[in-house]
């Protein structure tokens, strides 16, 4: 037998092995920080059983409370998506480095980074302070997060377009607006619709949550029910939210198929 044939085909990868051990050590250390002990786990399971026991059967009485909250959530999501999509177009165009001068893109990129860096809930807190409790704060918070997401991806999509078509349109003597409409938009429209429908789903999810901090919608009802230990009503609200999100995904899937 030659040396080559006796060589282990699967040699031990020592750096990888050390990294796995380090990961395991970190996990044990972090778990110990959170007092994740067996007894606590057992108490938790016990609590969980009681919790589930109080959740079932779901409470079916408070239809008007549920209806008011859910319809406000849907309204927040729809208005915020419409405004967010409309505002993302100019912001995204301004942030595209192949269309705009450098200083404009930096301004637009700064705006996008600012919109992206905070969770919608934190933005909602700031808007609740600025415009008071209610749906308006939730709408504004979701508009901000929509701009952060759609405009960023839209700008990246524009930067990837082929410039040949843009040059061809420009060579016919078209103005800037015509170059955008005939040369740029047709190349990125399908992707823009993809980002927009994704963000509509995301807005629908978040619109059910902004109420926790006073931004309107079902979130306030949900949080109050939790704090009052009305777990059976909590379950009703959760089932309704999940059903709403699934319906939203079906509708946005339909929208994507229609327009792409």
């Amino acid at each position: 037998m030659s040396a080559a044939s006796r060589r282990n085909p699967f040699p031990v990868n020592w750096p990888a092995r050390v990294a796995w051990v380090a990961l395991a050590a970190y996990t044990v250390y972090a778990a110990s920080l959170f007092q994740l002990t067996w007894t606590r786990f057992l108490t938790g399971i016990d609590n969980g059983a009681k919790f589930l026991d109080r959740m079932f059967p779901p409470l079916l009485g408070k239809w008007d409370l549920l209806w008011v909250g859910m319809s406000e959530s849907v309204e927040i999501a729809l208005i915020a998506s419409a405004l967010g999509v409309v505002l993302s177009v100019p912001v995204g165009l301004l942030a595209a480095r192949n269309l705009m001068p450098g200083w404009v893109t930096w301004l637009a990129r700064g705006l996008i980074a600012l919109c992206r860096s905070f969770h919608p809930m934190i933005v909602a807190i700031l808007f609740v302070k600025s415009v008071g409790f209610g749906a308006l704060a939730g709408i504004m918070a979701l508009v901000v997060s929509s701009i952060g997401f759609i405009a960023k991806l839209f700008a990246e999509a524009i930067e990837e377009i082929s410039l040949k078509q843009v040059e061809a349109v420009r060579a016919t003597g078209a103005g800037f607006a015509n170059v955008l409409i005939m040369g740029v938009i047709p190349q990125v429209l399908a992707r823009f619709i993809g980002f927009a429908t994704y963000q509509i789903d995301s807005n629908l999810r978040n619109s059910t949550m902004v109420g926790i901090v006073g931004g309107g919608g079902i979130g306030a009802t949900l949080f109050t029910a939790f704090q009052r230990f009305d777990y059976d009503f909590v379950l009703t609200i959760l089932i309704t939210i999940i059903a709403l999100i699934m319906v939203g995904e079906i509708v946005s899937g339909w929208m994507r198929r229609t327009f792409q």
Partner: peptide, 25 residues
């Protein structure tokens, strides 16, 4: 969208008050 805009509860006074509140913030 129209239905949402009609039925959503937005208090215009709060919106007018916004610049002042943001400055205060």
């Amino acid at each position: 969208l129209m239905q949402s805009l009609r039925s959503v509860e937005i208090i215009p006074e709060f919106l007018e008050d916004m610049p002042e509140q943001v400055a205060d913030l």
